[in-house]
Computed example of a mutant assay.
Amino acid sequence: MPVLVKDYTWSETDTEVLITVPLKGVKPSKADIFSSEDYVKINYTPYLFEVFLYAPVVEEESSIRVGNGVVEMRLCKKEKVIWGQLESNIKMDKEEMRRKREDVVKAVQEKMEQEQMERATKKREAEKLAIKQQMQLEEEAHSKIEKEKQDERDKAMEELEEWKQHKQEETKTTSITNKPTIQPAQLKQQQNSKLSHNMWQDNKDIPDSQRPAPRSGGKITVNFTPRYFPTAARESTEKEEQEWLAKMAAARKIQAGTPSEINKNNPMLLKDKACGFFKAGDYEAAINAFSQAISLNPMLPVLYSNRAACYLKLNDNEKCIQDATRALELLYPVVPSNHIQRAKVFVRRGTAYANIGNHGLALQDYEAAEKLDPDNTQLQTDIVQIRNLISCDS
């Protein structure tokens, strides 16, 4: 049975409400906050703060801050008016309160599902646009190369026509009987010219003695398609990068279901739905959705990583460690594009190790995450705290 928090404070103006709830020594990370336009709940075991607001507020303009042993909420009113009281009059009706809770949770879940569907649609449209633009760039590059080749061919044909015209003019002014004798060196040069210029071999009307000398060399500039990983040649990990891309491509191919079965057989939409449950605080429902997605596509590391976060919320540290370990196995080889993902998984597994008292392994995971994300100051702070715990244990 949770302990209801009654020693909170609140104040108001005609535009906003300020509520301060004490955490009573519970870590801020343990506080589970759920809010809507007319309902606020903060669950931090064994304490529970719950309030049905007197009037609706604007969620998008409101803010909640956790720190310094309290939870501070700034809620913006929809209407500029003084309430005079914080809580709604339904507080004394338990059945009405229960129904209100269910309606609020259902409305928030539906809103999150709709937002997830919209984000998924926008993401697919962006991917299609990116593919179309990439194909257009490749087509333009191909057309440019073909144009340069055609220009070179046209130039060569012009030179050939000019040379033929020049030879015809020389023939008119020179007597056939006075035709000069071909020297051995000149004959050798003509033979080499014949081997180097196959394009003139079909012109049977041109004698070998009148074939031109080889053309001067030319230069063609070729622009290559950019690599997926823009890494300098001396630092290239192309083999690992290609292995990673192949694994991700294989994982994306494992898609099941049709539009009529969109929530049952599509692992990515199941993932989005599970994320909605997670944000709503329904971690068991999120685990069920992630598990169903994994059964459809067991090669996506994000499914194991997110399910590990759910287990961590439920203090099921052993299962969190198992899922995090599996996610790290799938996030291999280590390439720049998965550094941040691997860092998150290391932090989740390290937190689970710390919860069961294995601070040594927790420190190893946090240090591994810090190497992948060196600019994260919060990781550096957590590492110092874990080292202090290890010092206390020894």
Rank of each mutant, 00 (worst) to 15 (best):
S391H: 12
Y44W: 04
L361Q: 12
Q255H: 10
T177Q: 04
E113Q: 09
V66A: 00
N266W: 05
K188M: 15
E61Q: 13
P180I: 04
V334G: 03
D375G: 15
E161P: 00
E170I: 12
F52A: 10
A246H: 14
T381E: 09
V3I: 15
A251M: 06
L303Y: 01
Q385P: 00
F229I: 07
E161H: 04
A293N: 03
N265L: 14
I287P: 07
R252L: 09
Q378K: 13
E87I: 06
G84P: 02
E318C: 05
V57S: 01
L48G: 01
K147E: 15
K155N: 13
L75V: 11
F52T: 10
S236L: 04
C320N: 03
E50N: 01
K164Y: 08
Q378S: 11
K41N: 06
Q150C: 05
D205W: 09
I42E: 00
L330T: 00
S305W: 08
G25V: 09
L137R: 14
L75S: 04
M97G: 09
G218K: 10
E95M: 07
A156V: 06
A327W: 02
F277E: 04
I33P: 00
N317F: 07
S291N: 06
E235W: 13
V17D: 04
S62C: 01
A368I: 01
D7L: 01
T221C: 03
S29I: 02
L23W: 06
E169P: 04
S196V: 12
P226N: 02
M299K: 15
Q364W: 05
P301D: 02
T174S: 03
K27Y: 07
Q186T: 08
M199K: 12
T231M: 14
S11E: 13
R342A: 03
Q201A: 13
N358S: 09
Q292N: 10
R211Y: 10
P230Y: 11
V335Q: 02
A369F: 00
D202P: 03
G69T: 04
A324G: 12
T15C: 09
Q380K: 12
L312C: 01
N297S: 11
T20D: 09
K111A: 10
K371L: 09
K271D: 02
S260C: 10
D7G: 02
V40Q: 02
N89V: 11
A246Y: 15
R99G: 07
N288V: 13
K219A: 05
A324P: 03
W244V: 07
R349G: 00
E102K: 11
Q136K: 14
Q183D: 08
V104H: 05
F52L: 09
D103I: 09
H359W: 10
E161I: 11
N178C: 05
M157D: 11
E16N: 14
E370D: 08
E12R: 06
P298H: 00
N203A: 11
V71W: 00
I287F: 07
V105K: 12
K319Q: 10
V51H: 05
I254C: 08
I321D: 00
E127S: 14
M1N: 07
G217Y: 08
A286M: 05
P267S: 08
N358F: 06
A213G: 03
E159H: 14
A362S: 08
S305N: 10
M1T: 05
Q133G: 02
D154G: 08
L18V: 15
A107S: 14
N265H: 10
P22N: 06
T121W: 11
E95A: 06
A213T: 06
A107I: 07
